[in-house]
Structures are given as structure tokens and as C-alpha cells.
Design a binder for these strands. Sequence first.
DNA 1: CCAATGTCAGTTTAACTGATATTC
DNA 2: CGAATATCAGTTAAACTGACATTG
Lengths: 161, 161
Amino acid sequence: MDDKAEASDGTAVASGRDETLDRRIGYRLRQAQSLLRARMDQTLREIGISVPQYATLELIRRALGVTNAQLARDAFITRQSMNTMLQSLQRRGLIERDAADDGGRQMPTRLTSDAEALLADAEERVVAIEAEMVAGMSAAQQTALLEGLDGLIAALRAPAD
Amino acid sequence: MDDKAEASDGTAVASGRDETLDRRIGYRLRQAQSLLRARMDQTLREIGISVPQYATLELIRRALGVTNAQLARDAFITRQSMNTMLQSLQRRGLIERDAADDGGRQMPTRLTSDAEALLADAEERVVAIEAEMVAGMSAAQQTALLEGLDGLIAALRAPAD
DNA sequence: CCAATGTCAGTTTAACTGATATTC
DNA sequence: CGAATATCAGTTAAACTGACATTG
């Protein structure tokens, strides 16, 4: 079946071939993430941080005293990109970095108390969005979704690892 | 909430609180999408297009003759951003835009035959990645995942719509 | 007049590659 | 020396806001 698509007025038309976009998991993944990101952007901007900044702060809180290079690996970006991010967070007084006590070259990163407060606020907002996002789903559905995403992550990681 | 985290060597440490990152759907969504995006980037670069360009071409193919403003809405970006994207695709000979036949201001977009060929190649690569990504999951699991993502999209769309 | 469209201009964010110095 | 780290510099991709003309 190759069907029609009337969009005389410019309205988007879902159409056509069977295995189009709409059936694809990757497409939906992008779409869901894009929508979530927009929501997060909006609420986080109110308290003065971006989504990547928030994500970085979360990573730092989780892995206390972690170094730039390790954070970069955790976030799947280059050392250089993470370095830029950390510098901007540092300039804003959200993190501190001292040369490692072992005299090495590493500079472990710590959240300041300002950051802890900000992060608490941010997390509350983000958790609220996430709650809203799954509100209509049963616990079983949520679990299935979580496991499905885990499966994707594991499969995508395997070859690159 | 001050639990231990020994990362003397810089190794990331999963740690701490119960409701940390790792339990959160949004976090996993970002992670899965980030990994998928990296894979797509890699394979699409080989044929000379980026992920956003690929996504735009798919949108155009799906909604034949659609206009800039409509594509922007479909992709959740501004008219101006989509315009830049279309201009670059046009410069590369992948799309054509003629003033609408109705004499209006709209300029419907069409794929060139070059683009059709390129898109076929791109899609094959992307579909292969997607297949690999869900290879380890049962059909039921895949369906559950798909429906879960649909649920997220619907919920996230509602308030902004 | 109003709303939507297309587009120009300038800006910002967040990534990238390349190169350099340091340190174990 | 080699490997990992931190960081400087320059670049790019892809989004953004603002402004303006056109068109129905």
C-alpha cells in the first residue's frame, strides 16, 4: 500500500509506507527525549542552569571527587568538552577543584554548598516532570519501560565497549 | 546522606542514595539516546550527513511537499533553525523548493533524486543499528518498550500542546 | 489590522579536533 | 618513553532571539 497524503493546508500528514518512522524505536526515543529535554530546559532555566550542566552536577554528586577525565567518560563526551563545562561551573561557584592530595595531576571535583542547594531544587523539578511523564502508566508498564531502556543501553554499549 | 564512595583511582562509583540517577527513566532515556546518537553519527558521517539532517530528510519524505514552518513544528525547533537546515540541504542539492503553485508565500520542499538515494542508504544503516539495539529483546518486550515510549510522548505533549 | 510565513543577522551552547605541558 | 591527565586554542553544528518584509 502506497497511499495518499493530502496536506493541502500544510498540516503534517502521517502517511505512507508501512515501516515508516513512526514504527521505529529510535525515532520515538529521539522524540521522547526531545520533549523531555524541552521541559527540563524550561524549568531549569528558571533557576539558572542548563540541562547539560544539571546532568554534570548530578554526575559529580554521584561520584564524589571524580576527575575531569572520568566525568568525560561517564558523560560520553571528550575530556576537552567536559573541561569547558567544569570551568564554567567553577566560574559560577558551583564546583571546587583542588590539586589532588597525592601530588598528582588529577584535580578532583567537589560540589559547593551553593551547588548542593541548587541541585536539590533542580532535582525536585526534574523528578516532578518525570513523575508527570509516567503518571498514566501502571507500575508494570513503568518497569517494562525501564527494562526495555536498559536493554537498549546494554546493546548499544556492547560494541563500543 | 553522606555515604561512602571510594574512588581513589578515579573510577566512577555508583553509590549512595536509593533514588539516584540510575533508577530514573529520564536518565536512562538520555543515556540510550546519547548512545544511539553516537552510533548514528558515526555511520551517517560515512555518507556525508548528520543526524539532524537525516531526521529532516525523513520528515520531508514522510510529509511530502511540506513547508518550512510545518517542518519546524514537526521537529520541535524554530522556523529560523529549520530554515538554516533547509538552506544547507538545498545548497547540497538534496532538496528543492519552488514558490507554491497557489501563488502564496509558502515554499513546499521536495527531495531530489540524489536525496532519495542517499536517504535509502542512510535508512538502511540506521535500521541496522536499531535492529541490533533490540536484538536481545523478545517481541513482547519490544512492544512494551514501544508502548512505553508512546506513553511518555503523549504525556509530555499534553501540557505543551 | 492580524496572523502566519520566509528569511536575514547576530548570538550562544555544547560539542569537536589539534597541540602542549605535566606527571606517574 | 609511554599513557593518562589537564588545558589552551580554534572550529563547527545546531540551536536560539530579534527584526523585517510579504501575504492571505
